[in-house]
């Protein structure tokens, strides 16, 4: 089963992934990264690893691991 991995240290809190996710699995968490941004977290129970977040993210936060 494919899985989405994140690199929260790259997130800039633009929120494009939150809007692009078809399953509303992405939201802003409580954490703050080194850049001072409130980074996004993925609810793995909702995620279907479609890769929309990978496509829309300008900063390379997401990667989809594993073949479907």
């Amino acid at each position: 089963m494919p899985k989405v991995m994140t690199k929260p240290e790259r997130c800039k809190q633009c929120g494009l992934c939150v809007d692009a996710c078809p399953k509303q699995a992405i939201s802003f968490g409580d954490g703050i990264n080194a850049g001072g941004y409130n980074y996004t977290v993925i609810d793995e129970s909702k995620c279907i690893a479609c890769g929309m977040c990978y496509t829309i993210c300008p900063d390379g936060v997401f990667e989809v691991l594993g073949e479907k």
Partner: peptide, 22 residues
């Protein structure tokens, strides 16, 4: 486990653009 959608190694480092820049 192979990566099915990975950031190309050419650009696999933090970018210094503004948040939300295309």
């Amino acid at each position: 486990m192979s990566k099915s959608k990975k950031v190309p190694y050419l650009v696999d480092r933090p970018m210094s653009f503004c948040p939300g820049c295309g």
